[in-house]
Design a protein around this nucleic acid. Structure first.
Lengths: 133, 133
DNA sequence: TTGACAAGTTCGGTAAGACTAACTATATTA
DNA sequence: TAATATAGTTAGTCTTACCGAACTTGTCAA
């Protein structure tokens, strides 16, 4: 989760991380130490926090996963942004490369247009709305 | 997780649960006590374990979720059974009712046949195989 | 029917992840 | 430049989830 904050903001102040994560300050200090031990962040007490090269790579992988999952929820299923965001955060750690890769292909597939230049995502939306009535 | 074992096997011996979960025996005892406190299982030391009515209901909810998620992985994405099973176990606790309900509808949608009496799942399979070459 | 073995439990301990309270370092601004 | 407010850290505690070792219970077979 800290990766997300660092990747997005580049700011890297401990307080921001704590707020973004909804967690108390000491938890952030602890987490930063742990990540520092794993050589994923450059951490010095009272200093700014940046990602190491290794950390940046790992963050990129996570971010890619996250974006694929969220896109599936939002663009395919039609889930609300905020719910999709939260769910993607929770789920991204549980899905291995096989599923992520297939999911990515699937999103691509669902967004290709058919003869009537309609995507499957659009058709599902219709299907869903019809079934509601 | 214990719910899964109890729901599927009906046997309910502590040892089986421990094996199924890949966990040591004391962990099972602890978990059973916790579930017993929540009135989800009937637990007496050294006795057999069964689900309470409440426990059965909750297990059914979880099982339904699980089956929807696994079905998406297997029947829609074409993921291997075992990987899908594992992933579904991890993911089922992270997805709320909005997503589960949409996902369920989506699986239904994907399995409806079009004019050429082909399901979208089949089309995706073709699409995926084409893209591999 | 009793003893040995398997199953289950208790006890004590470790590790992760969080918290509050109290302390320290940094930064701001008067 | 010195005081004070803000950010960050340390220390200590709690909870949860696990483990191994040692003990207890139950059962089955001689």
């Amino acid at each position: 989760m800290i990766f997300n904050v660092l990747a997005n903001t580049e700011v890297a102040r401990s307080k921001d991380i704590a707020e973004a994560l909804g967690v108390a300050k000491p938890s952030v200090t602890g987490a930063l130490k742990a990540l520092s031990d794993k050589k994923l962040v450059n951490y010095t007490p009272y200093g700014y926090v940046t990602l190491t090269e290794k950390g940046r790579k790992q963050a990129a992988v996570i971010a890619a996963k996250h974006s694929i999952i969220k896109s599936f929820f939002v663009d395919v299923l039609g889930i609300e942004q905020e719910i999709a965001e939260t769910a993607a955060c929770k789920v991204e750690h549980s899905l291995g490369p096989e599923i992520i890769s297939k999911l990515s292909k699937f999103i691509e597939f669902v967004n290709t247009k058919d003869s009537a230049s309609q995507t499957m995502a659009q058709k599902f939306s219709d299907f869903y709305n019809d079934s509601e009535s």
